[in-house]
Design a protein around this nucleic acid. Structure first.
Lengths: 156, 156
DNA sequence: CTCTTTGACTATCTTTGACTTTTAATTTTA
DNA sequence: TAAAATTAAAAGTCAAAGATAGTCAAAGAG
């Protein structure tokens, strides 16, 4: 049973790649209709997959002719690190952490191998702590790695 | 009466051999159902038989459409990796961990930047757990990173 | 005693829908 | 006809229900 959320995510990302540069514009109801899901499902996908820490910006307008714009940001590194650190905060789940690492790779801020190393470090099975502190430990490790990366601008 | 755990273990290993390369994806409840055991039994098998040390990597997602992925890493016994893994064992102090990372860098098995990332991940400050489990957590993370690196040797 | 099996409880992720808010379009009215 | 009121067309929010997987400890088996 393929997850509709994932399918919608991929669909939007494909739109973004085709329509390079400025981002894409969608209509929530139309898209929901196309995938035969609840309109609010689109919001779910947007808020879980197209967040700022993954480098996206969402704008929207309600009312007749309203729409949702999804923009892929191109922001400078320092701002970006700050957003990431803020987003991680005191604790972070494994999915969010993993997709943050993917994003770093997609943006060529880390190599593929580095992304694997990072993913290994913050995987649920590496962090064999009591469950109630897992997400805190993960947050610390991830922040630490990210800060390190951005402080050693030398060659990858 | 052969142990159901053993049967499940063999079953999964067969799946892995068929489906060469990428690893297999299972659904916990489905598998539990198939073997008529408690779902948590699957976890038991995974955590006792498909550990990192044995060269397996487990990934999973909860929620609708959730699943468990089991990946077999190509790690030959008695290789350098295996020696490192054995040396790390169940726990490792920060000094020893740091010097292992240095050694990897000295031998050009990891780049300088990778070594920084690794060091950041296993630093005492990152691992903000109760003191009594720090070295265990560090060991797990380090092993996980090392296994990953050697498994992706080709693509730097 | 150690390893296996089970199940109650927990955590996380997805899907849906009822209700709200905002804004454009349309109609009414002075 | 221009402002005001109304209607309709979006999008947003939030929480409940559903779908998985994880954890932990107790009971069972050898």
């Amino acid at each position: 049973m393929s997850k509709i959320s994932d399918i919608i995510e991929i669909f939007i990302k494909e739109l973004l790649e085709e329509d390079n540069e400025l981002g894409v514009e969608i209509q929530r109801n139309e898209l929901a209709n196309h995938f035969n899901c609840a309109p609010s499902h689109i919001n779910y996908v947007l808020t879980t997959r197209f967040t700022m820490d993954k480098g996206y910006l969402i704008e929207s307008r309600r009312g007749g002719g309203g729409n949702i714009k999804i923009l892929k940001l191109n922001i400078d590194k320092n701002t970006f690190v700050q957003i990431l650190i803020d987003e991680i905060g005191e604790n972070i789940g494994k999915m969010q952490a993993a997709s943050m690492i993917d994003m770093l790779k997609d943006r060529n801020l880390v190599t593929e191998r580095e992304s694997f190393i990072m993913a290994a470090a913050i995987s649920d099975r590496s962090i064999n702590t009591p469950i109630n502190i897992k997400n805190e430990v993960r947050a610390n490790i991830l922040k630490s790695m990210i800060i390190t990366i951005f402080n050693h601008k030398g060659r990858k």
